[in-house]
Amino acid sequence: MATGILALQGSFNDHRKSLELLDKEYVLIKDNGDLKNIDSLILPGGESTSMIKIQEESELFDSLKKLINDGIPTLGTCAGLILLAKDVLDGSVSLGLLDCVVERNAYGRQNESFEGLVKFNNNSQMYCFIRAPKIISARHNVKNVAQLDDEIVGIQENNIVGLCFHPELTNDENYLNWLNNFIVEGNNVRSF
């Protein structure tokens, strides 16, 4: 079985590198035909509007939605979080699975992008926030998994994790340990 990486646009090759470092098999997903034998899923960073447009005619998102609802471990980073969210503040289309409201580009434009010290997987590590979204609110069934100062920058609801930042750009030991636990072992991540 392999981890599917949504490969329409964005940082999918960086996520591929994470899985190579973990010796985990992967499949780049471009249409419905790529979805066989997938046991976990990664939605990468990139431009969410672009990804939504590219899959429009193939209705790939409907198939992804079914897979995620069936309970496979699913990670979304940045644009991936936006795609997973139940509500996006500007009304953008999303899969509507992760019970939260997110705001796109909420920290501002690129000049306001930053590296921030994030508490994630019980460690503190610098991660990249690039024109990043913010988690405006989340329901009580959603737990916090990552924090930047007082802000929640990562959440989990059952099999779905959404992060505002880009661990695929650092591929540090802390992230790879967490990813191995979540995607490869299928274990739940720890909360604070």
């Binding site: 646009q9 964005g10 940082s11 431009e47 644009a79 880009h166 750009l169």
Partner: peptide, 13 residues
């Protein structure tokens, strides 16, 4: 890293 990072997000686009 942040400057380069935005370009990384544009890949495949």
């Amino acid at each position: 890293k942040i400057k380069k990072g935005l370009a990384e997000m544009l890949k495949g686009g």
